[in-house]
Design a protein around this nucleic acid. Sequence first.
DNA 1: ATGCCGACAGGATGTCGA
Length: 261
Amino acid sequence: MKIAAWNVNSIKARLEPALAWLKQAQPDVVALQEIKCVDENFPAEPFEALGYNCAVHGQKTYNGVAILSKFPLEDVTPRLPGGETDDHSRYLEAVVTGKKGALRVGCLYAPNGNPVGTEKFTYKLGWLERLYTHASELLRNEEPVALLGDYNIIPQDRDCYDPKAWTKDALFQPQSRSALRKLEYLGYSDAFRMHNRAGGHYTFWDYQAGSWRRNAGIRIDHILLSPQAADRLGACDIDKHVRGEGEKPSDHVPIWAQIDI
DNA sequence: ATGCCGACAGGATGTCGA
């Protein structure tokens, strides 16, 4: 099955580009971030018309995540454990079953965390700790798991156009990068890096300062795979062309992986 | 050092994003 993650920066504003990309890319499962709408306002009908089931964990104005799937969505669970006071909609989990078995999908939108030194950065690190704990629990089952979405973490210098420009940014802090590495030490693999070690591959370009024109991007949207899913990884790539299409593209583009499940 | 751009809520302009 082909799985993908895409921060659409408002599903309402991105409905037409999203439908166009789905028709062209034909993913089986899509993890959407920053849908920026409540559950009842999610435009499910046009996605259902393309054969997708929809699971939505929405929020007014900010955040919000959803999973589209051509397979039935089972065991649908919103929110990371351990966040009783956390009212942000940033995580949605479900199980999809393909021809060869089941894949547990965790759709995530990690906090931005800027500015560093504020409660926002503390919240980011705390959220990533909760993700770590949950990711660790999921490994106990020794089953295929994909944790995919907008991590808001630049893993290495090679994952941004100009490292010096990001040194004070929450996405680039040692603590943020450490949180991503910890997931990898735990046993998860960065699907993109399994096939491509080169720098200069990005998933986000700021709307400002001609970032897209200069290719001044960063790689912050990731697909992390449990060993049982990584063993079944086929192709993995970034649909960069989407950033240059249409009149109003998202500032993120989809990343996808083919999993033999 | 900051804005640049864009979405949102609401009905002007501030918040948030990364």
